[in-house]
């Protein structure tokens, strides 16, 4: 029983490592799309957010360490993400251009910029930016001793996990319980109607894209910290997976959370199956296990996509003159 519990809590701890960045970035995408702007650039923004923050850690890690440094890095990643999402906002809101175009441009520029700057700025001229992981929390005081929940949530964890939960709660409140959220949703469904009652569609959409930039930048950092000790100008397609989670979650915060959890559980089982005696005894090769998260997602989607709840005006530029 004890060893079962140990395996189980290990798997759950692993699962958060996959789930939290997906959750944060998909929630970011939600704010952008609910305001009416498709944001395919999440991948690129993640790369830039992670790059700036890791570079910051790399520079300061001889002076600082631990949670203080991580919190500063988080602020950097948010700022970098917002800044990098600005061109996308400008092109798709002010210039009313096709939103896949500027998104693709950002996705293409991001890794190139990260590599270019890393090689120019680092004394060893390599593209990897190395960092020391001093951020893991072995056990949260007091909370870690709670039976069952303690090991699942409060041991071997990162402060970013709790930030992820906080963002989820905040996203739900902002979207459904505030005036801003109502306006945001209106701009994504029927911008003309929103405009006719005095909502500034352009401003709201800027806010939506900037929030998505902030969260995607943060998500990039959250993804890199637990999974690596250097940043190599990539977030392994997690930005695109976040887009998938966003659609899977039907553009709604709680459903996005469920989608992120579902995908992460599958992914954890696929990567840690050899630690589970029952799964290890099955004659299934590892490559097949690795396919399962993606196949399962497709199957679940096939059953759950009958009625799509995409924001109606998402991807449609708003032209004030066309009212």
């Amino acid at each position: 029983m004890n060893s079962f519990m140990q395996t189980f809590s290990f798997l759950i701890q692993q699962m958060w490592i996959f789930a939290v960045p997906l959750l944060i970035v998909a929630l970011g995408g939600m704010f952008s799309e609910r305001s009416g702007v498709v944001n395919i650039a999440l991948e690129g923004i993640m790369v830039i957010g992670a790059f700036c923050a890791i570079f910051f850690i790399n520079t300061l890690q001889n002076v600082m360490s631990g949670q203080g440094l991580l919190l500063l890095a988080i602020l950097i990643s948010i700022a970098a993400g917002m800044l990098f999402s600005l061109p996308h906002a400008y092109a798709s809101i002010r210039l009313r251009s096709d939103q896949t175009i500027s998104g693709t441009a950002l996705n293409m520029a991001a890794p190139a910029l990260a590599i270019y700057i890393a090689r120019m700025a680092q004394s060893n001229h390599v593209q990897q930016v190395q960092f020391n992981n001093t951020f893991r929390i072995r056990a949260v005081p007091y909370l870690a001793d709670i039976p069952v929940i303690g090991p699942l949530l409060f041991q071997n964890t990162y402060i970013t996990t709790f930030i992820g939960f906080a963002i989820l709660a905040a996203a739900w409140v902002v979207l459904y319980k505030t005036r801003f959220g109502l306006r945001l949703r209106a701009c994504g469904e029927h911008p003309q109607a929103a405009d006719s009652v005095g909502v500034n569609v352009y401003k709201i959409r800027y806010a939506g894209v900037l929030i998505s930039g902030a969260l995607a930048g943060l998500g990039g950092l959250v993804f890199v910290i637990p999974t690596s000790t250097d940043f190599n100008a990539t977030v392994s397609g997690y930005g695109f997976l976040a887009v998938a989670v966003l659609i899977f979650g039907q553009w709604k915060p709680m459903r996005i959370f469920v989608a992120a959890l579902f995908f992460s559980i599958m992914k954890t089982l696929a990567s840690a199956y050899s630690g589970i005696p029952f799964l290890k005894s099955l004659p299934i090769p590892s490559d097949i296990y690795k396919m399962i998260p993606y196949i399962m997602t497709l199957i679940v989607l096939a059953f759950s996509s009958r009625s799509s709840h995409a924001p109606r005006a998402s991807g449609v530029p708003y032209d004030k003159g066309e009212r």
Binding site: L241, V243, Y294, T297, S305, R306
Partner: peptide, 19 residues
């Protein structure tokens, strides 16, 4: 099944690679 082609394509990318 009305599954968004972007998400289906992303899933098929990974499935194809592992396959």
């Amino acid at each position: 099944f009305n599954v968004h082609e972007v998400i289906a394509c992303i899933m098929c990318n990974y499935i194809g690679m592992y396959l």
